[in-house]
Design a protein around this nucleic acid. Structure first.
Length: 428
RNA sequence: GGAGGGGUGACGGAGCGGCCGAACGUGGCGGUCUUGAAAACCGCAGGGUCGCAAGGCCCCGUGGGUUCGAAUCCCACCCCCUCCGCCA
């Protein structure tokens, strides 16, 4: 959510920044400012009346003790009360309209990111590693996995439906190994605190991080409850400190969490239909930071590096891309995607998305800190990034480490987590 | 799921329907004292919002209601605790 006061003082900048995103259908800033003025006008009126009522009510108390007749004053206040009630309702209605509009407005893109309509304008920042050259025809992971007996999409479809995966044996263990490896790296070497949150959150949390109210159709909701399946650990973990005022010396807070993630994938029919790339349920290790505003862009760079470290240790080739204004997510001011080399796609595929949300989420969720002992609370900046999407990582491992006979080598760093296993062998 | 108890400021804990945004204690901040520290003593300290300001309005789990006036009364919901039932 943007700061209404800031919009009021910088309407042109707001419009210009939003225009970079190229969205039509944005709530009109003029309309918003009109409502804002309406609200302040109503407040001035109603608060003056309340002040008067408060004064007279106190007089009534005193006068009655003194034995005076207060019937006429009480009658007058009774009537004033009705006027106030009507005005209060108007205020509430206007505030609801303002809130509704503010919740629909995306974050303003940071000035450092490229301007463009979509992903074609994204800017490659750097590459790491070399895509493997195969002396044979490499297979996609959705063929390798089932042949190795470690992935089973047919049975997943039987017990649930399309876009679900089932892991067998060494595959299940490999998934678990990746999760443990990532968590250990981030907690032991990058200074993050491990969190294991609920996978269901309430609506307020979903609004806090910006998934709702705008993207209701992308979420799974538990019927008859106020609970949603989390689409990412970002939601429960960022909201950990919702409504709190943190002490300055608590910052920065750095959390890492493994969770399953659930996405309805509405509107992606026909895309990435095979394998582990786009499923309704997938595992992810997430990195979340709550930081002082003036440090948030340094923190974004180090967040990206923490995610990159996972790919480097796994020896997976990747590149870093800065998203253009048109490709930016709703809540983000700046996002770097990490894209891993995926032989079956013949290109780099997103495996991590690292964003600075500045105060956008903090304002929605009410996450503040006190810069100095006596100072007014300010909103923190929030950041998060995948570190990494586990299913896609497993897919990338299978594909990049495959050998001609259909076996797959296991990277050194994972072997301790795999009981020393060095190669996944297809059954004879 | 059933029965009972409770939600007040960083924490603990008071609070006759008006004098309560809230006693008191702890903790915090500033000061006095001290070579320094501790102790003691004095003082300062919630959040939001409107306003150029003076100042006003709102907030005692959340939302309604009663009343001239509600932290205090009524209703609903949420959360926590205890007991019973069920259960991984």
């Amino acid at each position: 959510m943007l700061d209404l006061k800031w919009i009021r003082e910088h309407p042109e900048e707001t419009r210009a920044a939003l225009a970079r995103r190229g969205e039509e259908a944005l709530p009109s800033i003029d309309e918003l400012l009109r409502l804002d003025e309406e609200r302040r006008r109503l407040l001035a009126t109603v608060e003056e009346k309340k002040a008067y009522r408060n004064r007279v009510s106190q007089e009534i108390g005193r006068a009655r003790q003194a034995g005076e007749d207060v019937a006429d004053r009480m009658q007058a206040m009774r009537e004033l009360g009705e006027t106030i009630r009507a005005l209060d309702e108007q205020v509430k209605a206007v505030e609801a309209q303002i809130e509704e509009r503010l919740l629909q407005i995306p974050n303003l893109p940071h000035e450092s990111i490229p301007t463009g309509p979509d992903e074609t304008a994204n800017q490659e920042i750097r590459r790491w590693g070399e895509p493997p050259r195969f002396a044979f025809e490499p297979k996609p992971h959705w063929e390798l996995g089932p042949r190795l007996g470690i992935l089973d999409f047919e049975r997943a479809a039987k017990i649930t439906g399309a876009r679900f995966a089932l892991y067998w044996g060494a595959g299940a263990r490999l998934e678990r190994a990746l999760i443990s490896f990532m968590l250990d790296l981030h907690t032991q070497e990058h200074g993050y605190t491990e969190v294991f949150p609920p996978f269901l959150v309430n609506r307020a949390a979903m609004i806090g991080t910006g998934q709702l109210p705008k993207f209701e159709e992308d979420m799974f909701k538990c019927e008859g409850t106020d609970y949603y399946l989390i689409p990412t650990a970002e939601v429960p973990v960022t909201n950990l400190h919702a409504g709190e005022i943190l002490a300055a010396d608590q910052l920065p807070l750095r959390y890492t969490a493994y969770t399953a993630c659930f996405r309805a994938e509405a509107g992606s029919a026909g895309r990435d239909t095979r394998g582990l790339i786009r499923n309704h349920q997938f595992d992810k290790v997430e990195l979340v930071k709550l930081v002082r505003p003036e440090t948030s862009y340094e923190e974004l760079e180090s967040l990206v590096q923490d995610a990159e470290a996972v790919l480097q240790r796994l020896g997976l080739p990747y590149r870093v891309v800065c998203l253009s204004s048109g490709d930016l997510g709703f809540a983000a001011a700046k996002t770097y995607d990490l894209e891993v080399w995926m032989p079956s796609y013949g290109r780099y595929v997103e495996i991590s998305s690292c964003s600075n949300f500045e105060a956008f989420q903090a304002r929605r969720a009410g996450i503040r800190f006190r810069p100095e002992p006596k100072a007014k609370p300010e909103f923190v900046h929030t950041l998060n990034g995948s570190g990494l999407a586990v299913g896609r990582t497993l897919a990338a491992l299978l594909e990049n480490y495959q050998q001609e006979d259909g076996s797959v080598r296991i990277p050194e760093v994972l072997r301790p987590y795999m009981g020393g296993l060095e190669v996944l062998q297809p059954p004879a």
